[in-house]
Every structure is written in C-alpha cells, then in structure tokens.
C-alpha cells in the first residue's frame, strides 16, 4: 500500500485553476522527484496536501495518508500529520527559519511537539540532530540565531528540524535552488544519506532533472498543473517520451563529455489564467499537431511501466532532439 496517495487533486485561487487533477502515489521509503519549470504547480500540490495553502485556495480531490483523508481534515488532525508524519523543507533556507529565535529553540519546539522531549533531553537530541546534518561544533552553536549560519547550514538546520519529528515522508521543495553548486551537491548527499539511514520516503521537488536523478528512484514531470510523464528515473533518462521531458533534459548542463550548446525550451510556462486550448504544452512543442491544440491528452499507462500524457510521444529523443547527435551525424 502506498504511504500517500493523491487522487485527482485540483486547486484554484480566486477562480483560476492552477492544478488540474494531479494523481501521484508515494510508497513507504520511496523517493520520488517532482520536476518542472517554475510555476507548474509543484509546490502547490504539496502545500495543498498538508493544508498549508491560504484560505482562499479552493481544493478538491483526495490526499490520503495510509488511508486517512487529509483534504478538508480538521486543524488538529493536520497538525498531527505536519512535522510528525510528513515534514517539509523549503527553497529559501535563510528566511525559512525564524530570525528572532535561537535555532536550538526552534529544534526544541519540534522535539517537544512530536517526541514529547523537553529540557536537557531535548537539548541533547537537538545537538545530536545538528551533528547528524553536519553542523560543525553543534554543541556551542545551538544557541546561535539563524543569521549566524550560512545558507547551506540553514538548510541543514531545516533538515535537522524536519528529522526531529521522525517523519515517514520528507517533502523537500527545491531545497538546493538558492544554494551554490558545491553546497547543493553536499545537501543532496546529505539527503541521500539520511534517507538511506532512516528509510523515510522523500518527495524531491526541483526544476533540475540532474539533482532529481541524484536522489530519486522515480520522477514525475509536471507542466501547467498536470503530471505529463512519470517513470523510473533510469527509464526517464534513457527514454523520455514527453517532448517537455526531452526539453528539460536538453537544458541540463553536462559536466562530463563534450561541451554542447544548452537548448532551453522555447517560450515560457503559460499563465494559469490563460491556458492554451488542448495540450498546454502545444504552443512550445515541435511535435504538436492541430489535434494537440484542441484535445487534452490523458496520462496513460505505458508498457515500460511509465505514464505519459502526449498524443505524439517522442520515440528516439536522442536522434530527433539532441543538437549533439545532430552535429555527429553531420
């Protein structure tokens, strides 16, 4: 049975729909990536699942945690789930910690809430957690304030705070986007290690497929409020089917191998207020036909175990798309 099961999740703000029926499952201990350009609805999906969206957000569909419904659950029920069953860390670590409270106090709060620890026991556990996430001399630095740590260290503290509740699932919403490349790699390492040691499940949200491949078993690609492709990470890399996924791969800078020009996808994510008719990706898609511009492709099960929502899936993307292979052929 899956740990968390999102069924037909729809969200609108002031009548503008931004999620159009998301279906996702995360199994126990599984690590899935959620990829897509900014504004595709990755954050909203999980904020909605945890009831963290502002009141004016209208949510329908279902999110169940081991069978327990979270959509429209009571405040009390959600508070139990948040931090205790599902923890979430965010993109901007420095402003995600309370600037006027010592980090030890902020950790203590979670330990008290979810593990019933207090006083010296809580403090010892907080120090252990800070050690675990790689904060040097945690014992002395536990009483510092967030601004006395670097961005990367703040993200480590956020991770420690998430671990404090011993959650079954960690949602990491672009945890490395605001950090520079070396720190980014360290945080990815840390997440992979922690997952390995604790066996908790993880949803890793990113617009960077490279980062996703480093920590995830499986990935879902989102575009304009829909999941457009989903597969095991290896399959997705070897055989991306949706032109949007292919486009995302083209945009990854390669560290090894010959340098090639990056091929960003033309155009931008559509405004949810003015979605194109048919497939929302069609205006940016080289494969689009008239049919794509009038009908909405459903997310269909594929023989390789993946799912794709496209009328003209890419068959051999390396040949049709990659400028590198085009040069080779010339």
């Amino acid at each position: 049975m899956s740990l968390i099961w999102i069924k037909d999740l729809r969200v609108s703000f002031d009548g503008v729909q931004v999620l159009h029926g998301i279906n996702l499952q995360v199994g126990k201990g599984e690590s899935i990536g959620l990829v897509g350009e900014s504004g595709c609805g990755k954050s909203v999906t999980w904020l909605a699942a945890l009831g963290l969206l502002p009141q004016r957000a209208q949510i329908s569909g279902s999110v169940t945690l081991e069978g327990r419904e979270l959509v429209n659950a009571s405040r009390g029920e959600l508070e139990q789930v948040r931090g205790g069953r599902i923890a979430m860390i965010f993109q901007d670590p420095s402003s995600s910690l309370n600037p006027v409270q010592r980090v030890g106090k902020q950790l203590d709060e979670s330990l008290r809430l979810h593990r019933g620890l207090s006083g010296a026991t809580a403090r010892a556990e907080a120090i252990r957690l800070l050690d675990l996430v790689g904060i040097p001399s945690a014992k002395t630095r536990i009483d510092l304030y967030p601004h006395e740590f670097s961005g990367g260290q703040c993200q480590r503290i956020m991770i420690a705070m998430a671990l404090a509740g011993e959650p079954d699932l960690l949602i990491a919403d672009e945890p490395t986007t605001a950090l520079d490349a070396t720190i980014q790699a360290q945080i990815l390492d840390l997440l992979a290690t922690i997952r390995h040691e604790t066996g908790m499940a993880m949803v890793f949200i990113s617009h960077d497929l490279g980062a996703v491949s480093a920590v995830c078993d499986r990935a879902a690609v989102m575009y304009a409020g829909r999941v457009v492709e989903q597969n095991h990470i290896g399959e997705l890399f070897d055989n991306p089917r949706h032109p949007y996924t292919v486009g995302l791969f083209e945009a990854i800078p390669e560290l090894q191998g010959p340098r090639r020009r990056l091929q960003p996808i033309n155009g931008t994510v559509p405004n949810p207020r003015h979605l194109p008719r048919g497939c929302a990706f069609s205006p940016r898609c080289a494969h689009a036909s008239d049919f794509c511009r009038s009908a909405q492709p459903a997310l269909l099960q594929q023989p390789d175990g993946g799912q794709v929502a496209c009328f003209h899936p890419v068959r051999d993307p390396r040949r049709t798309f990659s400028p590198a292979s085009a040069e080779l052929a010339a």
Binding site: E79, F90, S96, E109, H114
Partner: peptide, 15 residues
C-alpha cells in the same frame, strides 16, 4: 507572509 511562518505551520504547531 514570511517563509518562517510557513515553516512553523509545517512543523505542526497550532495556529
């Protein structure tokens, strides 16, 4: 509207 408020909510603190 600050991110740390969302963090505090995501921790499971009461409103």
């Amino acid at each position: 509207g600050q991110p740390y408020i969302r963090t505090a909510m995501a921790k499971g603190l009461s409103w």
